[in-house]
Simulated assay, not measured.
Amino acid sequence: MIRRILPLVLLAASLGACATRGPGAEAAASPGDPLEPTNRQVLDVNMAVDDAVLKPVAQGYRAAVPEYARTRIRNVLDNMAEPRIFANNVLQGRFLDAGHTTMRFFFNSTVGVAGLYDVATDFGIARRTGDFGQTLYSWGLDDGAYLMLPIAGPSNVRDTVGLVADGFLNPISWALPFSGNVARAGVGGVDLREQNIESLDALRSGSLDFYARLRSVWEQRRDAELGRTGDTGDRLDVLEDPGSVPSTVPAAR
Rank of each mutant, 00 (worst) to 15 (best):
I125T: 06
V57H: 09
G189K: 13
V187T: 15
G140E: 09
S247D: 05
G233M: 00
V111D: 01
T229N: 11
V45D: 05
D33W: 02
A202L: 11
L91K: 11
E194T: 12
F86A: 03
R215P: 09
S155T: 14
A252T: 03
V249L: 00
R94C: 04
R222C: 03
N156D: 15
N181V: 11
L136F: 11
I125N: 09
D142E: 14
D118T: 08
P37N: 01
P66C: 14
L35K: 02
I151Q: 01
T102P: 03
R84L: 08
G227F: 07
V190E: 06
L91N: 12
G233K: 00
V9F: 08
Q220W: 01
N39P: 12
S109T: 14
G144V: 01
P7E: 01
P83S: 05
I125F: 03
W139V: 10
V49I: 13
L8T: 05
D44M: 06
L54D: 03
E194G: 05
R3A: 11
G32I: 11
Q59N: 13
P250Y: 04
T101Q: 10
D118G: 11
L236H: 01
P7S: 10
P23A: 13
V76C: 07
S109Q: 13
R127L: 00
E26F: 08
E219R: 15
S155V: 12
L236V: 07
G112S: 01
F123I: 06
T248L: 05
G206M: 00
L96N: 03
Q92D: 06
S199W: 04
